[in-house]
Simulated assay, not measured.
Amino acid sequence: MDWYSTVKFLHIVSATVWVGGGFTLMLLGVLADRADDRENVMFIMRTVAQLGNKLFAPMSILTLLFGLVMAWFWVGFSNLWIVIGLCGFAAAFLTGTFVFKPTADKMLALIEKEGVSPAAMHLARRMLAFGKIDYAVMLVVVADMALKPTLNDTAILGGMVMVLAAGVAMALGGARRLSPAHA
């Protein structure tokens, strides 16, 4: 096995843990919210908050570092798909730093003070809404890494824009509740 394959493997493993773990928790949170299961929503959002600095941030940094190593030594930085990937990472990093972390900290403080209050649920739902946008960005980055589009790949680039728009629409659309017959 050569160095490129090793670094690429580590890049993919880091990204899988980061993106897959976060996506699973976000999906569980959305399903709990749709079922109006507030205790479960809060449990999942507390888990997200606890894993943010311990798992998701380190895995995201490792994903970036391994990707930068591959670009620096083997691929270069001029390809569109590299630029899209770096922009996606920047968007996810900024969302985590300036939305998820402070919102989670406020939510945890409220839970400590008041328990599962309407204000704490509001913050949990805010995290879920931003999570929908964040994971639309992640889906675009995963597609970007797999498909490696150029400026000539208008269908792929258009699909990426549509995925981002769908993520924003789902975040702004609020939570649909499951009817009691389906809960």
Rank of each mutant, 00 (worst) to 15 (best):
M1C: 08
L62S: 14
V168D: 06
K106C: 06
W18R: 03
A71E: 08
L108P: 00
G88T: 15
M145A: 15
L164D: 10
A120I: 01
V163E: 11
I156K: 10
T103L: 09
H11K: 14
A104T: 11
S179I: 00
N79T: 09
G67A: 11
G76C: 08
W81L: 07
L110N: 12
D105F: 01
A129E: 11
V30R: 02
F23N: 01
E114M: 08
S179K: 05
L64K: 10
D153G: 12
M127D: 05
F98T: 02
A169V: 15
V137W: 07
R46I: 00
M160T: 04
T24F: 07
R176L: 14
A155F: 03
P102D: 05
T154V: 14
L164R: 01
D37K: 00
R46E: 07
H122I: 01
V41H: 03
G167R: 03
V30S: 02
S5A: 13
F98Q: 07
M70A: 07
T6E: 11
G85Q: 06
A166D: 04
M26P: 00
T63G: 12
V19K: 02
L123S: 11
S78Y: 02
L139I: 05
F9I: 00
K113L: 09
R38G: 03
E39L: 07
L28W: 09
N40V: 00
C87N: 08
A104C: 09
F130R: 00
V69R: 08
A35T: 03
A183K: 15
V99T: 04
F100M: 13
F56L: 02
H122L: 05
M59V: 00
L68W: 12
G21P: 02
N40H: 04
M162C: 07
L157K: 11
A181F: 09
V19E: 02
Q50T: 01
V75I: 15
M70L: 15
T95Y: 06
C87L: 15
V168R: 13
F56D: 02
S60M: 12
R125M: 05
T16N: 09
R177L: 12
A71I: 07
S14E: 08
